[in-house]
């Protein structure tokens, strides 16, 4: 077990419902995720696995009144996020935890110059003003390997390329030296070479400041290069977790295995690409057994009961599958 003083984010058994006219959607079903100081933790899974929802909850950024917490807790740097007032949250966001989103094109206010958007955040959280705030903003842009930070400072978002905008957003996220940065598909919209550069910058800056990163992606290749530990999510729950090399090298859950098999790189030339048969379960009904069972080739009668996360043997590697449980015995 990790040293509690080093835990930055601790989500425990989080259960979230979205009330809709057609009944509640059981979006998150007892997910537990921990991020330690300076650690790079990935959440992988297909669309609809609630990886984004879970991460937005870490900052309580889901629209108020549109969700209900049915159970569990979220603690950020030891503070109970679910019980915090909106005023406290405003102080926590940006200062203790910042976020980088997927779409660099739309993630900046289109009618404001880059500099003005950066200064607003810097003034708010760092208490800097005038010259000092401006210097910090330009230094942040420089740290992001932007060639001419003074010039970019005075530009509008639409005048910059996607990679450039994402660097601005990363610089902005680091502006208050937060303890945690949540990167939600932060590099997905970029082309591969730019993606590599941006990931490199993100890693270097996080290392130098000791910032932890919660990295949400559906790209297993990126996750394998970038993350120390991985959580694999399916239908709103964690199905497998552990060190990246363990999870991807020796997957213990059939879903993780199926995801890996579906990678185009694994197919032989001329071979049909593999996919996972079936689709994500309907989350308007409460799940009773293993959520993956209907799509699992190795499912059996025991899968009608929901499996808990159990250690698979190696350090910190756990999977929520009856097969893994059997293997350990």
């Amino acid at each position: 077990m990790a040293d509690p003083s080093r835990v930055v984010l601790e989500i425990r058994n989080l259960t979230l419902r979205f009330p809709t006219y057609g009944g509640a959607v059981h979006a998150v079903n007892g997910a537990s995720i921990r991020v330690d100081a300076g650690e790079r933790v990935g959440i992988v899974g297909e669309s609809g696995s609630a990886k984004s929802v879970t991460s937005l909850m870490a900052m309580r950024l889901l629209p108020e009144g549109r969700f209900e917490v049915a159970g569990g807790s979220v603690a950020l740097c030891g503070r109970d996020i679910l019980a915090a007032s909106e005023k406290e949250m405003v102080n926590i966001r940006g200062r203790d935890v910042a976020m980088i989103f997927q779409e660099p094109l739309t993630a900046l206010n289109p009618t404001r110059r880059i500099g003005r958007q950066m200064l607003e955040v810097i003034r708010l959280h760092r208490g800097l003003s005038g010259r000092a705030a401006r210097d910090l903003a330009i230094r942040l842009l420089g740290d992001m390997r932007i060639a001419d930070p003074e010039q970019v400072f005075g530009r509008y978002p639409f005048e910059l390329s996607g990679g450039m905008r994402q660097r601005v957003l990363i610089g902005l996220a680091f502006s208050c030296e937060p303890k945690l940065i949540v990167a939600d598909e932060a590099t997905t919209a970029l082309d591969v070479t730019v993606q590599r550069q941006v990931l490199h910058l993100l890693r270097a800056k996080a290392n130098s400041l000791g910032t932890a990163i919660l990295f949400i992606t559906h790209d297993l290749a990126v996750a394998s290069q970038f993350c120390d530990r991985l959580y694999v999510m399916y239908a709103g729950a964690v199905v497998e977790e552990g060190p990246t090399a363990e999870v991807l090298g020796a997957p213990a859950h059939p879903y993780t295995q199926a995801l890996l098999d579906a990678l185009p790189e694994r197919a032989a030339p001329g071979e049909r690409l593999r996919s996972i048969a079936g689709s994500v379960p309907d989350l308007t009904a409460e799940l009773s057994g293993c959520a993956f069972a209907p799509r699992c080739a190795q499912a059996s009668a025991v899968c009608e009961r929901r499996p808990a996360l159990i250690p698979t043997g190696s350090d910190g590697h756990r999977a929520a599958c009856w097969l893994a449980a059997k293997a350990v015995q």
Partner: peptide
């Protein structure tokens, strides 16, 4: 619903400040 509103909120800018300072001027256009 725009992403920049979420970015501003994620950077700790208060709700009504985002509404009046960022969203409203753009909505007026």
């Amino acid at each position: 619903q725009q992403d920049y509103v979420r970015t501003a909120r994620a950077n700790g800018i208060a709700k009504w400040r985002v509404i009046c300072g960022h969203a409203l001027p753009n909505a007026l256009i």
